[in-house]
Simulated assay, not measured.
Amino acid sequence: MAITLPFNRKAVLAALVITAAAATTVTVPGTAEAQSGSRICGNYWEARANGKTVGIIAKVLEVPKVDFGICLRVIDKTNSISGRSLPGYNGTVTWNPRHAMRSWTCEEAGDLFNDKYGNDPCLDMNRVDLIGQVANRTPRELSQVY
């Protein structure tokens, strides 16, 4: 014997959908639109002169949060600075071994540059959405002299 309820199925489903939407709006914090679906991948190196760290340089690209191997391809693409000098530093530097940046947030990149580079190091990133695009994108270079 079936139990009869005083409301119909459509009304219950509609109420559940409205409740779920309201709960999601309240519990999910807002994020910046340009960064909400992205992460940063690439490499960075510390510049040394006279036994001290005098600066830093990074080569990075923006990738989707779920990158399906794109980040590893970007790390491989940006793995060398080929004897470069440190922009803004007068003198010769040696470079520490590279450090991979795998799926970093913009805030983590800002912390790497002690938040001195600018308000947001991600503003002018080149985004890579498909693994085949990695070869055609130019990495963004960030540098800072301490």
Results as ranks from 00 to 15, higher is better:
Met1Pro: 09
Ile3Trp: 11
Thr4His: 09
Asn8Gln: 13
Lys10Cys: 05
Val12Lys: 11
Val12Leu: 15
Val12Tyr: 13
Leu13Gln: 14
Ala22Leu: 14
Ala23Trp: 12
Thr25Ala: 15
Val28Met: 06
Val28Asp: 06
Gly30Leu: 13
Gly30Phe: 11
Thr31Trp: 11
Thr31Val: 14
Ala34Thr: 09
Ser36Val: 13
Ser38Pro: 00
Arg39Thr: 09
Arg39Pro: 02
Cys41Ser: 15
Asn43Pro: 01
Ala49His: 10
Asn50Thr: 10
Lys52Tyr: 03
Val54Ser: 02
Val54Asn: 03
Ile56Pro: 01
Ile56Gln: 03
Ile57Phe: 05
Lys59Ala: 08
Val60Met: 07
Val60Tyr: 06
Leu61Cys: 01
Val63Leu: 00
Lys65Val: 07
Lys65Gln: 12
Asp67Gln: 10
Gly69Thr: 06
Ile70Glu: 01
Ile70Lys: 02
Ile70Met: 07
Ile75Asn: 07
Asp76Val: 03
Thr78Glu: 04
Asn79Trp: 04
Ser80Ala: 13
Ser82Ala: 12
Ser82Asn: 14
Ser82Arg: 12
Arg84Ile: 10
Arg84Val: 11
Arg84Asn: 09
Arg84Ser: 15
Ser85Trp: 08
Ser85His: 10
Leu86Cys: 02
Leu86Glu: 04
Pro87Lys: 06
Tyr89Asp: 04
Gly91Arg: 13
Thr92His: 07
Val93Asn: 00
Val93Cys: 00
Val93Met: 02
Thr94Leu: 06
Thr94Cys: 08
Trp95Arg: 00
Trp95Asp: 02
Trp95Ile: 04
Asn96Lys: 13
Asn96Thr: 07
Asn96Tyr: 07
Pro97Thr: 09
Arg98Met: 10
Met101Asn: 03
Trp104Pro: 03
Cys106Trp: 06
Cys106Val: 11
Glu107Leu: 08
Ala109Glu: 10
Ala109Gly: 08
Ala109Val: 15
Gly110Leu: 07
Leu112His: 01
Phe113Gln: 06
Phe113His: 11
Asn114Pro: 02
Asp115Thr: 10
Lys116Ser: 09
Tyr117Trp: 14
Gly118His: 00
Gly118Asp: 09
Cys122His: 03
Cys122Arg: 03
Leu123Met: 11
Asn126Pro: 05
Asn126Cys: 05
Asn126Val: 12
Asn126His: 09
Arg127Tyr: 03
Val128Met: 02
Val128Pro: 02
Val128Tyr: 01
Val128Arg: 00
Gly132Val: 00
Gly132Leu: 01
Gln133Thr: 10
Val134Met: 01
Ala135Thr: 07
Asn136Pro: 00
Arg137Pro: 00
Pro139Arg: 08
Glu141Val: 14
Leu142Phe: 05
Ser143Glu: 08
